[in-house]
Amino acid sequence: MTIAVGQKLPDATFKMLAADGAKNVTTGEFFAGKKVVLFGVPGAFTPTCSNNHLPGYLENHDAILARGVDKIAVVAVNDHHVMTAWARFTGGEGKIDFLADGNGDFVKALGLDIDLSVGGLGLRSKRFSMIVEDGKVTALNIEDAPGQAVESGAAKLLEQL
């Protein structure tokens, strides 16, 4: 079952690269007491994710934060090394938190996983965006097709803030 507006995020653990190395961070730690814009992508370095989805959030970073958001984060079913490299490559380091959901546990718990094995990608995240306030989903946008970033894009999300 897919998570819905009004529901609390499931317990899960991400890996993030911090100044002192890789660290685990739970959903409770990351989202507690904060207003967070979270978007999910099928994979770091993939064309739509790198060329369309992530750039919108980088371009609208200041406008999103100006609307009372504490932080912006992206999650993908990739390891933290890949997510760190993607952050550096895209210029997102220090602006967006890159959350590695290496085994897809978080997106599975959200009901937002997708099997892209036919394309050789295995289990991945559906493309989505959400507003999370103190761990509770207050807005949710899910793309119908993984190759698009319209419903889950930054422009749509800005309208919801």
Results as ranks from 00 to 15, higher is better:
67 R>C: 08
73 A>G: 08
129 S>K: 01
16 M>Y: 05
160 Q>S: 14
137 V>C: 14
73 A>T: 08
91 G>H: 10
30 F>L: 14
81 H>D: 02
79 D>C: 08
158 L>A: 05
66 A>T: 04
62 D>K: 14
29 E>P: 11
130 M>D: 12
143 E>Y: 04
157 L>N: 03
108 K>N: 12
87 A>E: 09
155 A>W: 00
158 L>T: 02
122 G>M: 01
130 M>H: 05
69 V>S: 08
99 L>D: 09
76 A>Q: 08
137 V>P: 15
19 A>H: 00
143 E>G: 11
85 A>V: 06
38 L>K: 02
103 N>P: 08
56 G>Q: 06
129 S>M: 08
141 N>K: 09
125 S>C: 11
62 D>H: 04
44 A>M: 05
16 M>H: 01
109 A>W: 03
43 G>A: 04
79 D>W: 06
133 E>F: 00
28 G>R: 04
39 F>M: 07
34 K>Q: 13
98 F>G: 00
160 Q>V: 14
51 N>V: 07
45 F>G: 07
11 D>C: 10
81 H>G: 00
134 D>I: 01
54 L>M: 15
129 S>I: 05
42 P>L: 06
96 I>T: 04
27 T>M: 07
122 G>E: 01
61 H>W: 10
34 K>A: 10
96 I>S: 11
129 S>F: 05
78 N>M: 13
119 G>Y: 08
10 P>T: 04
27 T>V: 13
87 A>Q: 13
149 A>L: 10
101 D>T: 01
135 G>E: 10
16 M>K: 11
156 K>S: 15
161 L>V: 00
3 I>Y: 12
49 C>K: 01
11 D>W: 00
28 G>D: 14
108 K>E: 15
100 A>Y: 02
93 E>G: 00
121 L>F: 12
100 A>R: 01
91 G>W: 11
80 H>P: 04
146 P>E: 13
118 V>K: 10
116 L>I: 08
86 W>R: 03
137 V>Y: 12
6 G>N: 11
57 Y>C: 14
79 D>L: 09
14 F>G: 03
94 G>E: 12
112 L>D: 10
57 Y>I: 11
125 S>T: 03
114 I>C: 00
12 A>N: 13
108 K>R: 15
55 P>I: 11
106 F>Q: 04
115 D>P: 13
34 K>C: 10
92 G>K: 02
9 L>Q: 10
2 T>F: 05
152 S>F: 00
124 R>F: 03
149 A>Q: 02
83 M>L: 11
128 F>P: 09
41 V>L: 15
86 W>N: 06
77 V>W: 07
31 F>T: 03
42 P>E: 03
151 E>T: 11
88 R>G: 07
13 T>N: 09
68 G>N: 06
82 V>T: 12
117 S>N: 10
64 I>Q: 06
1 M>F: 15
156 K>E: 15
35 K>L: 01
82 V>R: 01
6 G>Y: 07
127 R>I: 00
137 V>T: 14
